[in-house]
Design a protein around this nucleic acid. Sequence first.
DNA 1: CTGTTAGCGCTTTCAA
DNA 2: TTGAAAGCGCTAACAG
Lengths: 344, 344
Amino acid sequence: MGKKTTIYDIAKKLEITAATVSRALNNSPKISKKTRELVLETAKEMNYEQNKLALALKSGKSNNVGVIVPRIDSNFFASVIRGIEEELFANGYHVIICQTHNDENIEIENINTLLNAQVDGVLMSISNVDVYKNKSFNRIFKKQVPLIFFDRKANIEGVSSVTINDFEAGYKVTKHLIEQGCKKIAHLSGNILLEIFNNRFLGYKQAIEDEGIEFNEDYVIRINSTVEDGRNAVKKLLSLKNPPDGIFSSSDYAALGAIQELKANNIKIPDDISIVGFANEPFTKFMELSISTVDQSPVEMGKIAANVFLEQVNNTDKSKIEKKVVLTPELLIRKSSLKKDITK
Amino acid sequence: MGKKTTIYDIAKKLEITAATVSRALNNSPKISKKTRELVLETAKEMNYEQNKLALALKSGKSNNVGVIVPRIDSNFFASVIRGIEEELFANGYHVIICQTHNDENIEIENINTLLNAQVDGVLMSISNVDVYKNKSFNRIFKKQVPLIFFDRKANIEGVSSVTINDFEAGYKVTKHLIEQGCKKIAHLSGNILLEIFNNRFLGYKQAIEDEGIEFNEDYVIRINSTVEDGRNAVKKLLSLKNPPDGIFSSSDYAALGAIQELKANNIKIPDDISIVGFANEPFTKFMELSISTVDQSPVEMGKIAANVFLEQVNNTDKSKIEKKVVLTPELLIRKSSLKKDITK
DNA sequence: CTGTTAGCGCTTTCAA
DNA sequence: TTGAAAGCGCTAACAG
């Protein structure tokens, strides 16, 4: 009962050979209709189930892909994974999840164990910018396992990636704030070593310069994407001799913290200070004072990353495919940055 | 370069046999210190990496477990999965994610493909109450693959589960509303066929009866866990000749919709109507009018489910382990149900 | 159309 | 302490 039936069992029963059974099961053309039906029938009778492990060992394809993210319990990453899973499951792949918690050692370990498990590909959002310099990381290239970055990528030649245009996002947000009448715009940034944060910052900078506003170093505060850091950043900003009248936060959570702190100081939003976040976390929409933010279409990002992987893995000829997909961010203007007295 | 080195390669180089290499690599006691060191050394030199697939085929253990949830992009499920992954990765297992989108056919298909992939266990939150009656589902018992339910479980003898005490949760919430002075308490329920929703409902009913309040069928509305359904439910409630003064929603999203609709009708929360949700979704805390809710400690739930699996899989003797873990829900009282003029 | 054979990479008796 | 050989379950090349 615990023992599973193999193709040998059904071969023996039918007094044929395992190869024939295999052919029948796989709809090989070189088999008679009669035996095929017979095999299929008795296979069902005997509750035969294909052992994918044997197939995997034989073919060298596990039909598993690894997905590595900092953590899964953030709406953004969970949504990307949702997209990946939906697309890949439909193509016969399973998705193995790994979290790094932004720990470089764990990140490397994840890659190692995934490769040992013979995954057919790795989709990841890097935690550590320099991870690709690690020796273990190079196994992925040596083994020629398709690697696709999404969102937090490293810039490696020959490696595909799916991102949004963070520069454009930063530019759009800043432009929007300026159009709302803001002249002194602060920026809550993240780890500038990560491309995404650097690009958002560069977009911000470009926008204010394009509008003839002078760049002020004091207005740029580098923080983590947390509510608390957002609050602290605002404390710092308010203590400036010339505090800002607009804030572009690279994180919704920090934007939330900023709003809390501003309210605690009886500062009116958006009239005194307008604010825009980033990522379109669900709560931004639900607040009474809804928070303007940037949508990154994470589910679509996941689907596209999955499809880039599929292309790559199905690409038979030697030509290396390198695909850099850049999605257009969508600025969602909500109450936190929309002044009522402005008529456009 | 693309070809990976096997134990045969290193055996050949050292002019020993693959078996010896295997023993050296696995720290078998029956091997000389000298050859072991030699093997380990050249293994490193040749960049040897164990092929887990071969091991899996040989041993019948894949070191993968499947996790099946309705969808991954909800904070609750993502958090449970986070807990599962953290616990299982530390024990050498990989987590394969599957989503059902509440589609029974997909749910069955997920189970089938996971079993074919030879997972060592399945942790799931069921989408369809009757899924266990499906013939395919029974493969899981025939194969003796450990099965653990979390949150949305079916009541099957011999199957372990990790849940919260939903009855207690429903009871606590309702009692709290009564203590706040509510006398006419409505309940937004879910699919009553799922134990979790039925138990919350039963807790609710018990509480009002314990307090001498008459149960009113009109106050119980069965909806989906969405903002829109929450709004519609409130519309219905407000149209009653005797509308409620308190609402216990089995879903935070529905609670949010309810609040939106109440506000649209200029009804004061919590003074005119108090409201409590369920699940402690992040947004409930962030609203200006923060929403009272029930925390289910999802990360811990995941960790426990993982540990129940580990116990089960490591249990060598024949004795069936059936473990039904029931966690205590925590009522989080926030603004939406805390009347200022009440002094306790 | 079907059978024979070999092999994917590893572990594990059984002998030596 | 090491070697030889079998086998996990499947597929594919080669014969017939």
